[in-house]
Amino acid sequence: MKDNLEGRKLVDQMDVKFKARDVQVFYGESQAIKDVNVDILDKTVTAFIGPSGCGKTTFLRCLNRMNDTIPICRVEGDIRLDDEDIYAPEVDPVQLRARVGMVFQKPNPFPKSIYDNIAYGPRIHGLARNKSDLDDIVEDSLRRGALWDEVKDRLGEPGTGLSGGQQQRLCIARAVATAPEVLLMDEPCSALDPIATAQVEELIDELKQNFSVVIVTHSMQQAARVSQKTAFFHLGNLVEYGDTDHIFTNPVDPRTESYITGRIG
């Protein structure tokens, strides 16, 4: 608890997008997340790091209520997006997820054409007024996903036919197409080779101009490269949160230091 308060002081008074207070997550009887307090900033890349099973992915999935799809999962505490409680009973998770997009560990393009993959979100949310509007959204999203030049001549081909790195950028573009405010990324590069990883990281860097990006990663180098803020999770606790530079050069908590220097992991 004390650590979290320390961490919060480090947050400067920029636009706070997500405000989480005393978040607890249970899977059946066992508790996966304990008393997490964190503020996630707009137009910033925030990295969640920590050893396997520390709860960083679970916490990420709380932010757009993806945990609702797991029947035994229970979330307590207070999470606010733009100061609105996202777990309030009147909130429709579908509406929430349109504003908080998600990219998954393994690229999961739908078995449809590239165009239909991107157009899926705008169609279900009714974002386009007509066909040319939709075309624009698709082109814009693919450009933002840094994929336009590679696929512009074959939009009708199945998305599953792309290479792994292209598929993941397609999934990012697909998430961007619904015009979210926050983009959650769950280890987006773990299934990719180094070249594709570099492309995706570059993309994340560009995305932060328009979105708040939260990325879960196993790689501390990646966290150091792409993020401005870093949160270190350990055994379901948020141990330390602050500026990335600060955490990596001058960690406050001994556990953070051990993890960064490779003693726990």
């Binding site: 609105e84 409680d85 996202i86 309030a88 009147e90 949310h125 624009d136 814009d140």
Partner: peptide, 24 residues
């Protein structure tokens, strides 16, 4: 091109459901 500002469900509060979502 769509911009963040002119989305139909843009800055609307999460706490009231828009017509489109109700239909869905």
């Amino acid at each position: 091109m769509t911009d963040v500002a002119d989305r139909p469900n843009g800055r609307r509060s999460l706490h009231d459901t828009d017509r489109h979502t109700r239909r869905r």
